[in-house]
Deep mutational scan, measured.
Amino acid sequence: KKKPLTQEQLEDARRLKAIYEKKKNELGLSQESVADKMGMGQSGVGALFNGINALNAYNAALLAKILKVSVEEFSP
Rank of each mutant, 00 (worst) to 15 (best):
K1P: 01
K1H: 06
K1N: 15
K3C: 11
K3V: 12
K3L: 13
P4M: 15
P4I: 14
P4C: 14
P4Q: 14
P4D: 12
L5Q: 06
L5Y: 05
T6G: 07
T6Q: 06
T6M: 08
E8N: 07
E8T: 06
E8G: 07
Q9N: 02
Q9R: 03
Q9T: 01
Q9K: 04
Q9I: 00
L10R: 13
L10G: 05
E11F: 05
E11P: 01
D12L: 06
D12A: 09
D12K: 07
D12M: 09
R14Y: 07
R14H: 09
R14W: 08
R15Q: 02
R15T: 01
L16A: 04
K17C: 08
K17I: 04
K17Q: 09
A18Y: 08
A18D: 12
I19K: 05
I19L: 11
Y20P: 04
Y20E: 03
Y20V: 06
Y20G: 04
Y20F: 13
E21R: 07
E21I: 09
E21Q: 11
E21Y: 09
K22F: 06
K22W: 03
K23M: 04
K23C: 02
K23L: 00
K24Q: 06
K24P: 01
K24D: 03
K24L: 01
N25D: 15
N25M: 13
N25S: 13
E26V: 11
L27G: 05
G28R: 10
G28V: 06
G28W: 00
L29C: 03
L29Y: 01
S30N: 11
S30P: 01
S30E: 04
S30T: 15
S30K: 05
Q31M: 15
Q31W: 15
Q31P: 15
E32S: 12
E32Y: 06
E32H: 10
E32P: 06
S33F: 08
S33Y: 14
S33N: 09
V34A: 04
A35F: 00
A35T: 05
A35R: 02
A35Q: 03
A35S: 08
K37H: 08
K37R: 13
K37V: 10
K37P: 02
K37Q: 14
M38V: 06
M38P: 02
G39S: 09
G39Y: 04
G39H: 10
M40E: 05
M40Q: 07
M40I: 14
G41N: 15
G41Y: 10
Q42H: 12
Q42F: 11
Q42M: 15
S43N: 12
S43R: 12
S43A: 15
S43H: 12
S43Q: 14
G44M: 14
G44P: 03
G44A: 15
V45T: 05
G46S: 15
G46M: 15
G46D: 15
A47H: 10
A47M: 10
L48W: 04
L48Y: 06
L48K: 04
L48N: 07
F49I: 10
F49D: 07
F49P: 06
F49H: 04
F49Y: 02
N50G: 08
G51I: 00
G51L: 00
G51D: 06
I52Q: 14
I52D: 13
I52A: 11
I52P: 03
I52C: 11
I52H: 13
I52F: 09
N53K: 14
N53W: 06
N53S: 13
A54V: 06
L55R: 02
L55G: 03
L55H: 02
L55K: 01
N56A: 01
N56R: 05
A57F: 11
A57T: 12
Y58V: 14
N59Y: 08
N59Q: 14
N59R: 04
A60W: 00
A60R: 04
A61H: 13
A61S: 14
A61F: 07
L62P: 05
L62Y: 06
L62W: 06
L63F: 11
L63T: 09
A64L: 00
A64C: 04
K65I: 00
I66M: 09
L67H: 05
K68M: 08
K68G: 12
K68C: 09
K68A: 08
K68H: 13
K68D: 13
V69T: 10
V69R: 04
V69Q: 05
V71E: 08
V71D: 06
E72H: 14
E72W: 11
E72T: 12
E72M: 10
E72V: 10
E73V: 02
E73L: 00
E73N: 08
E73Q: 08
F74H: 01
F74Y: 06
F74A: 03
S75H: 05
S75F: 00
P76H: 08
P76N: 04
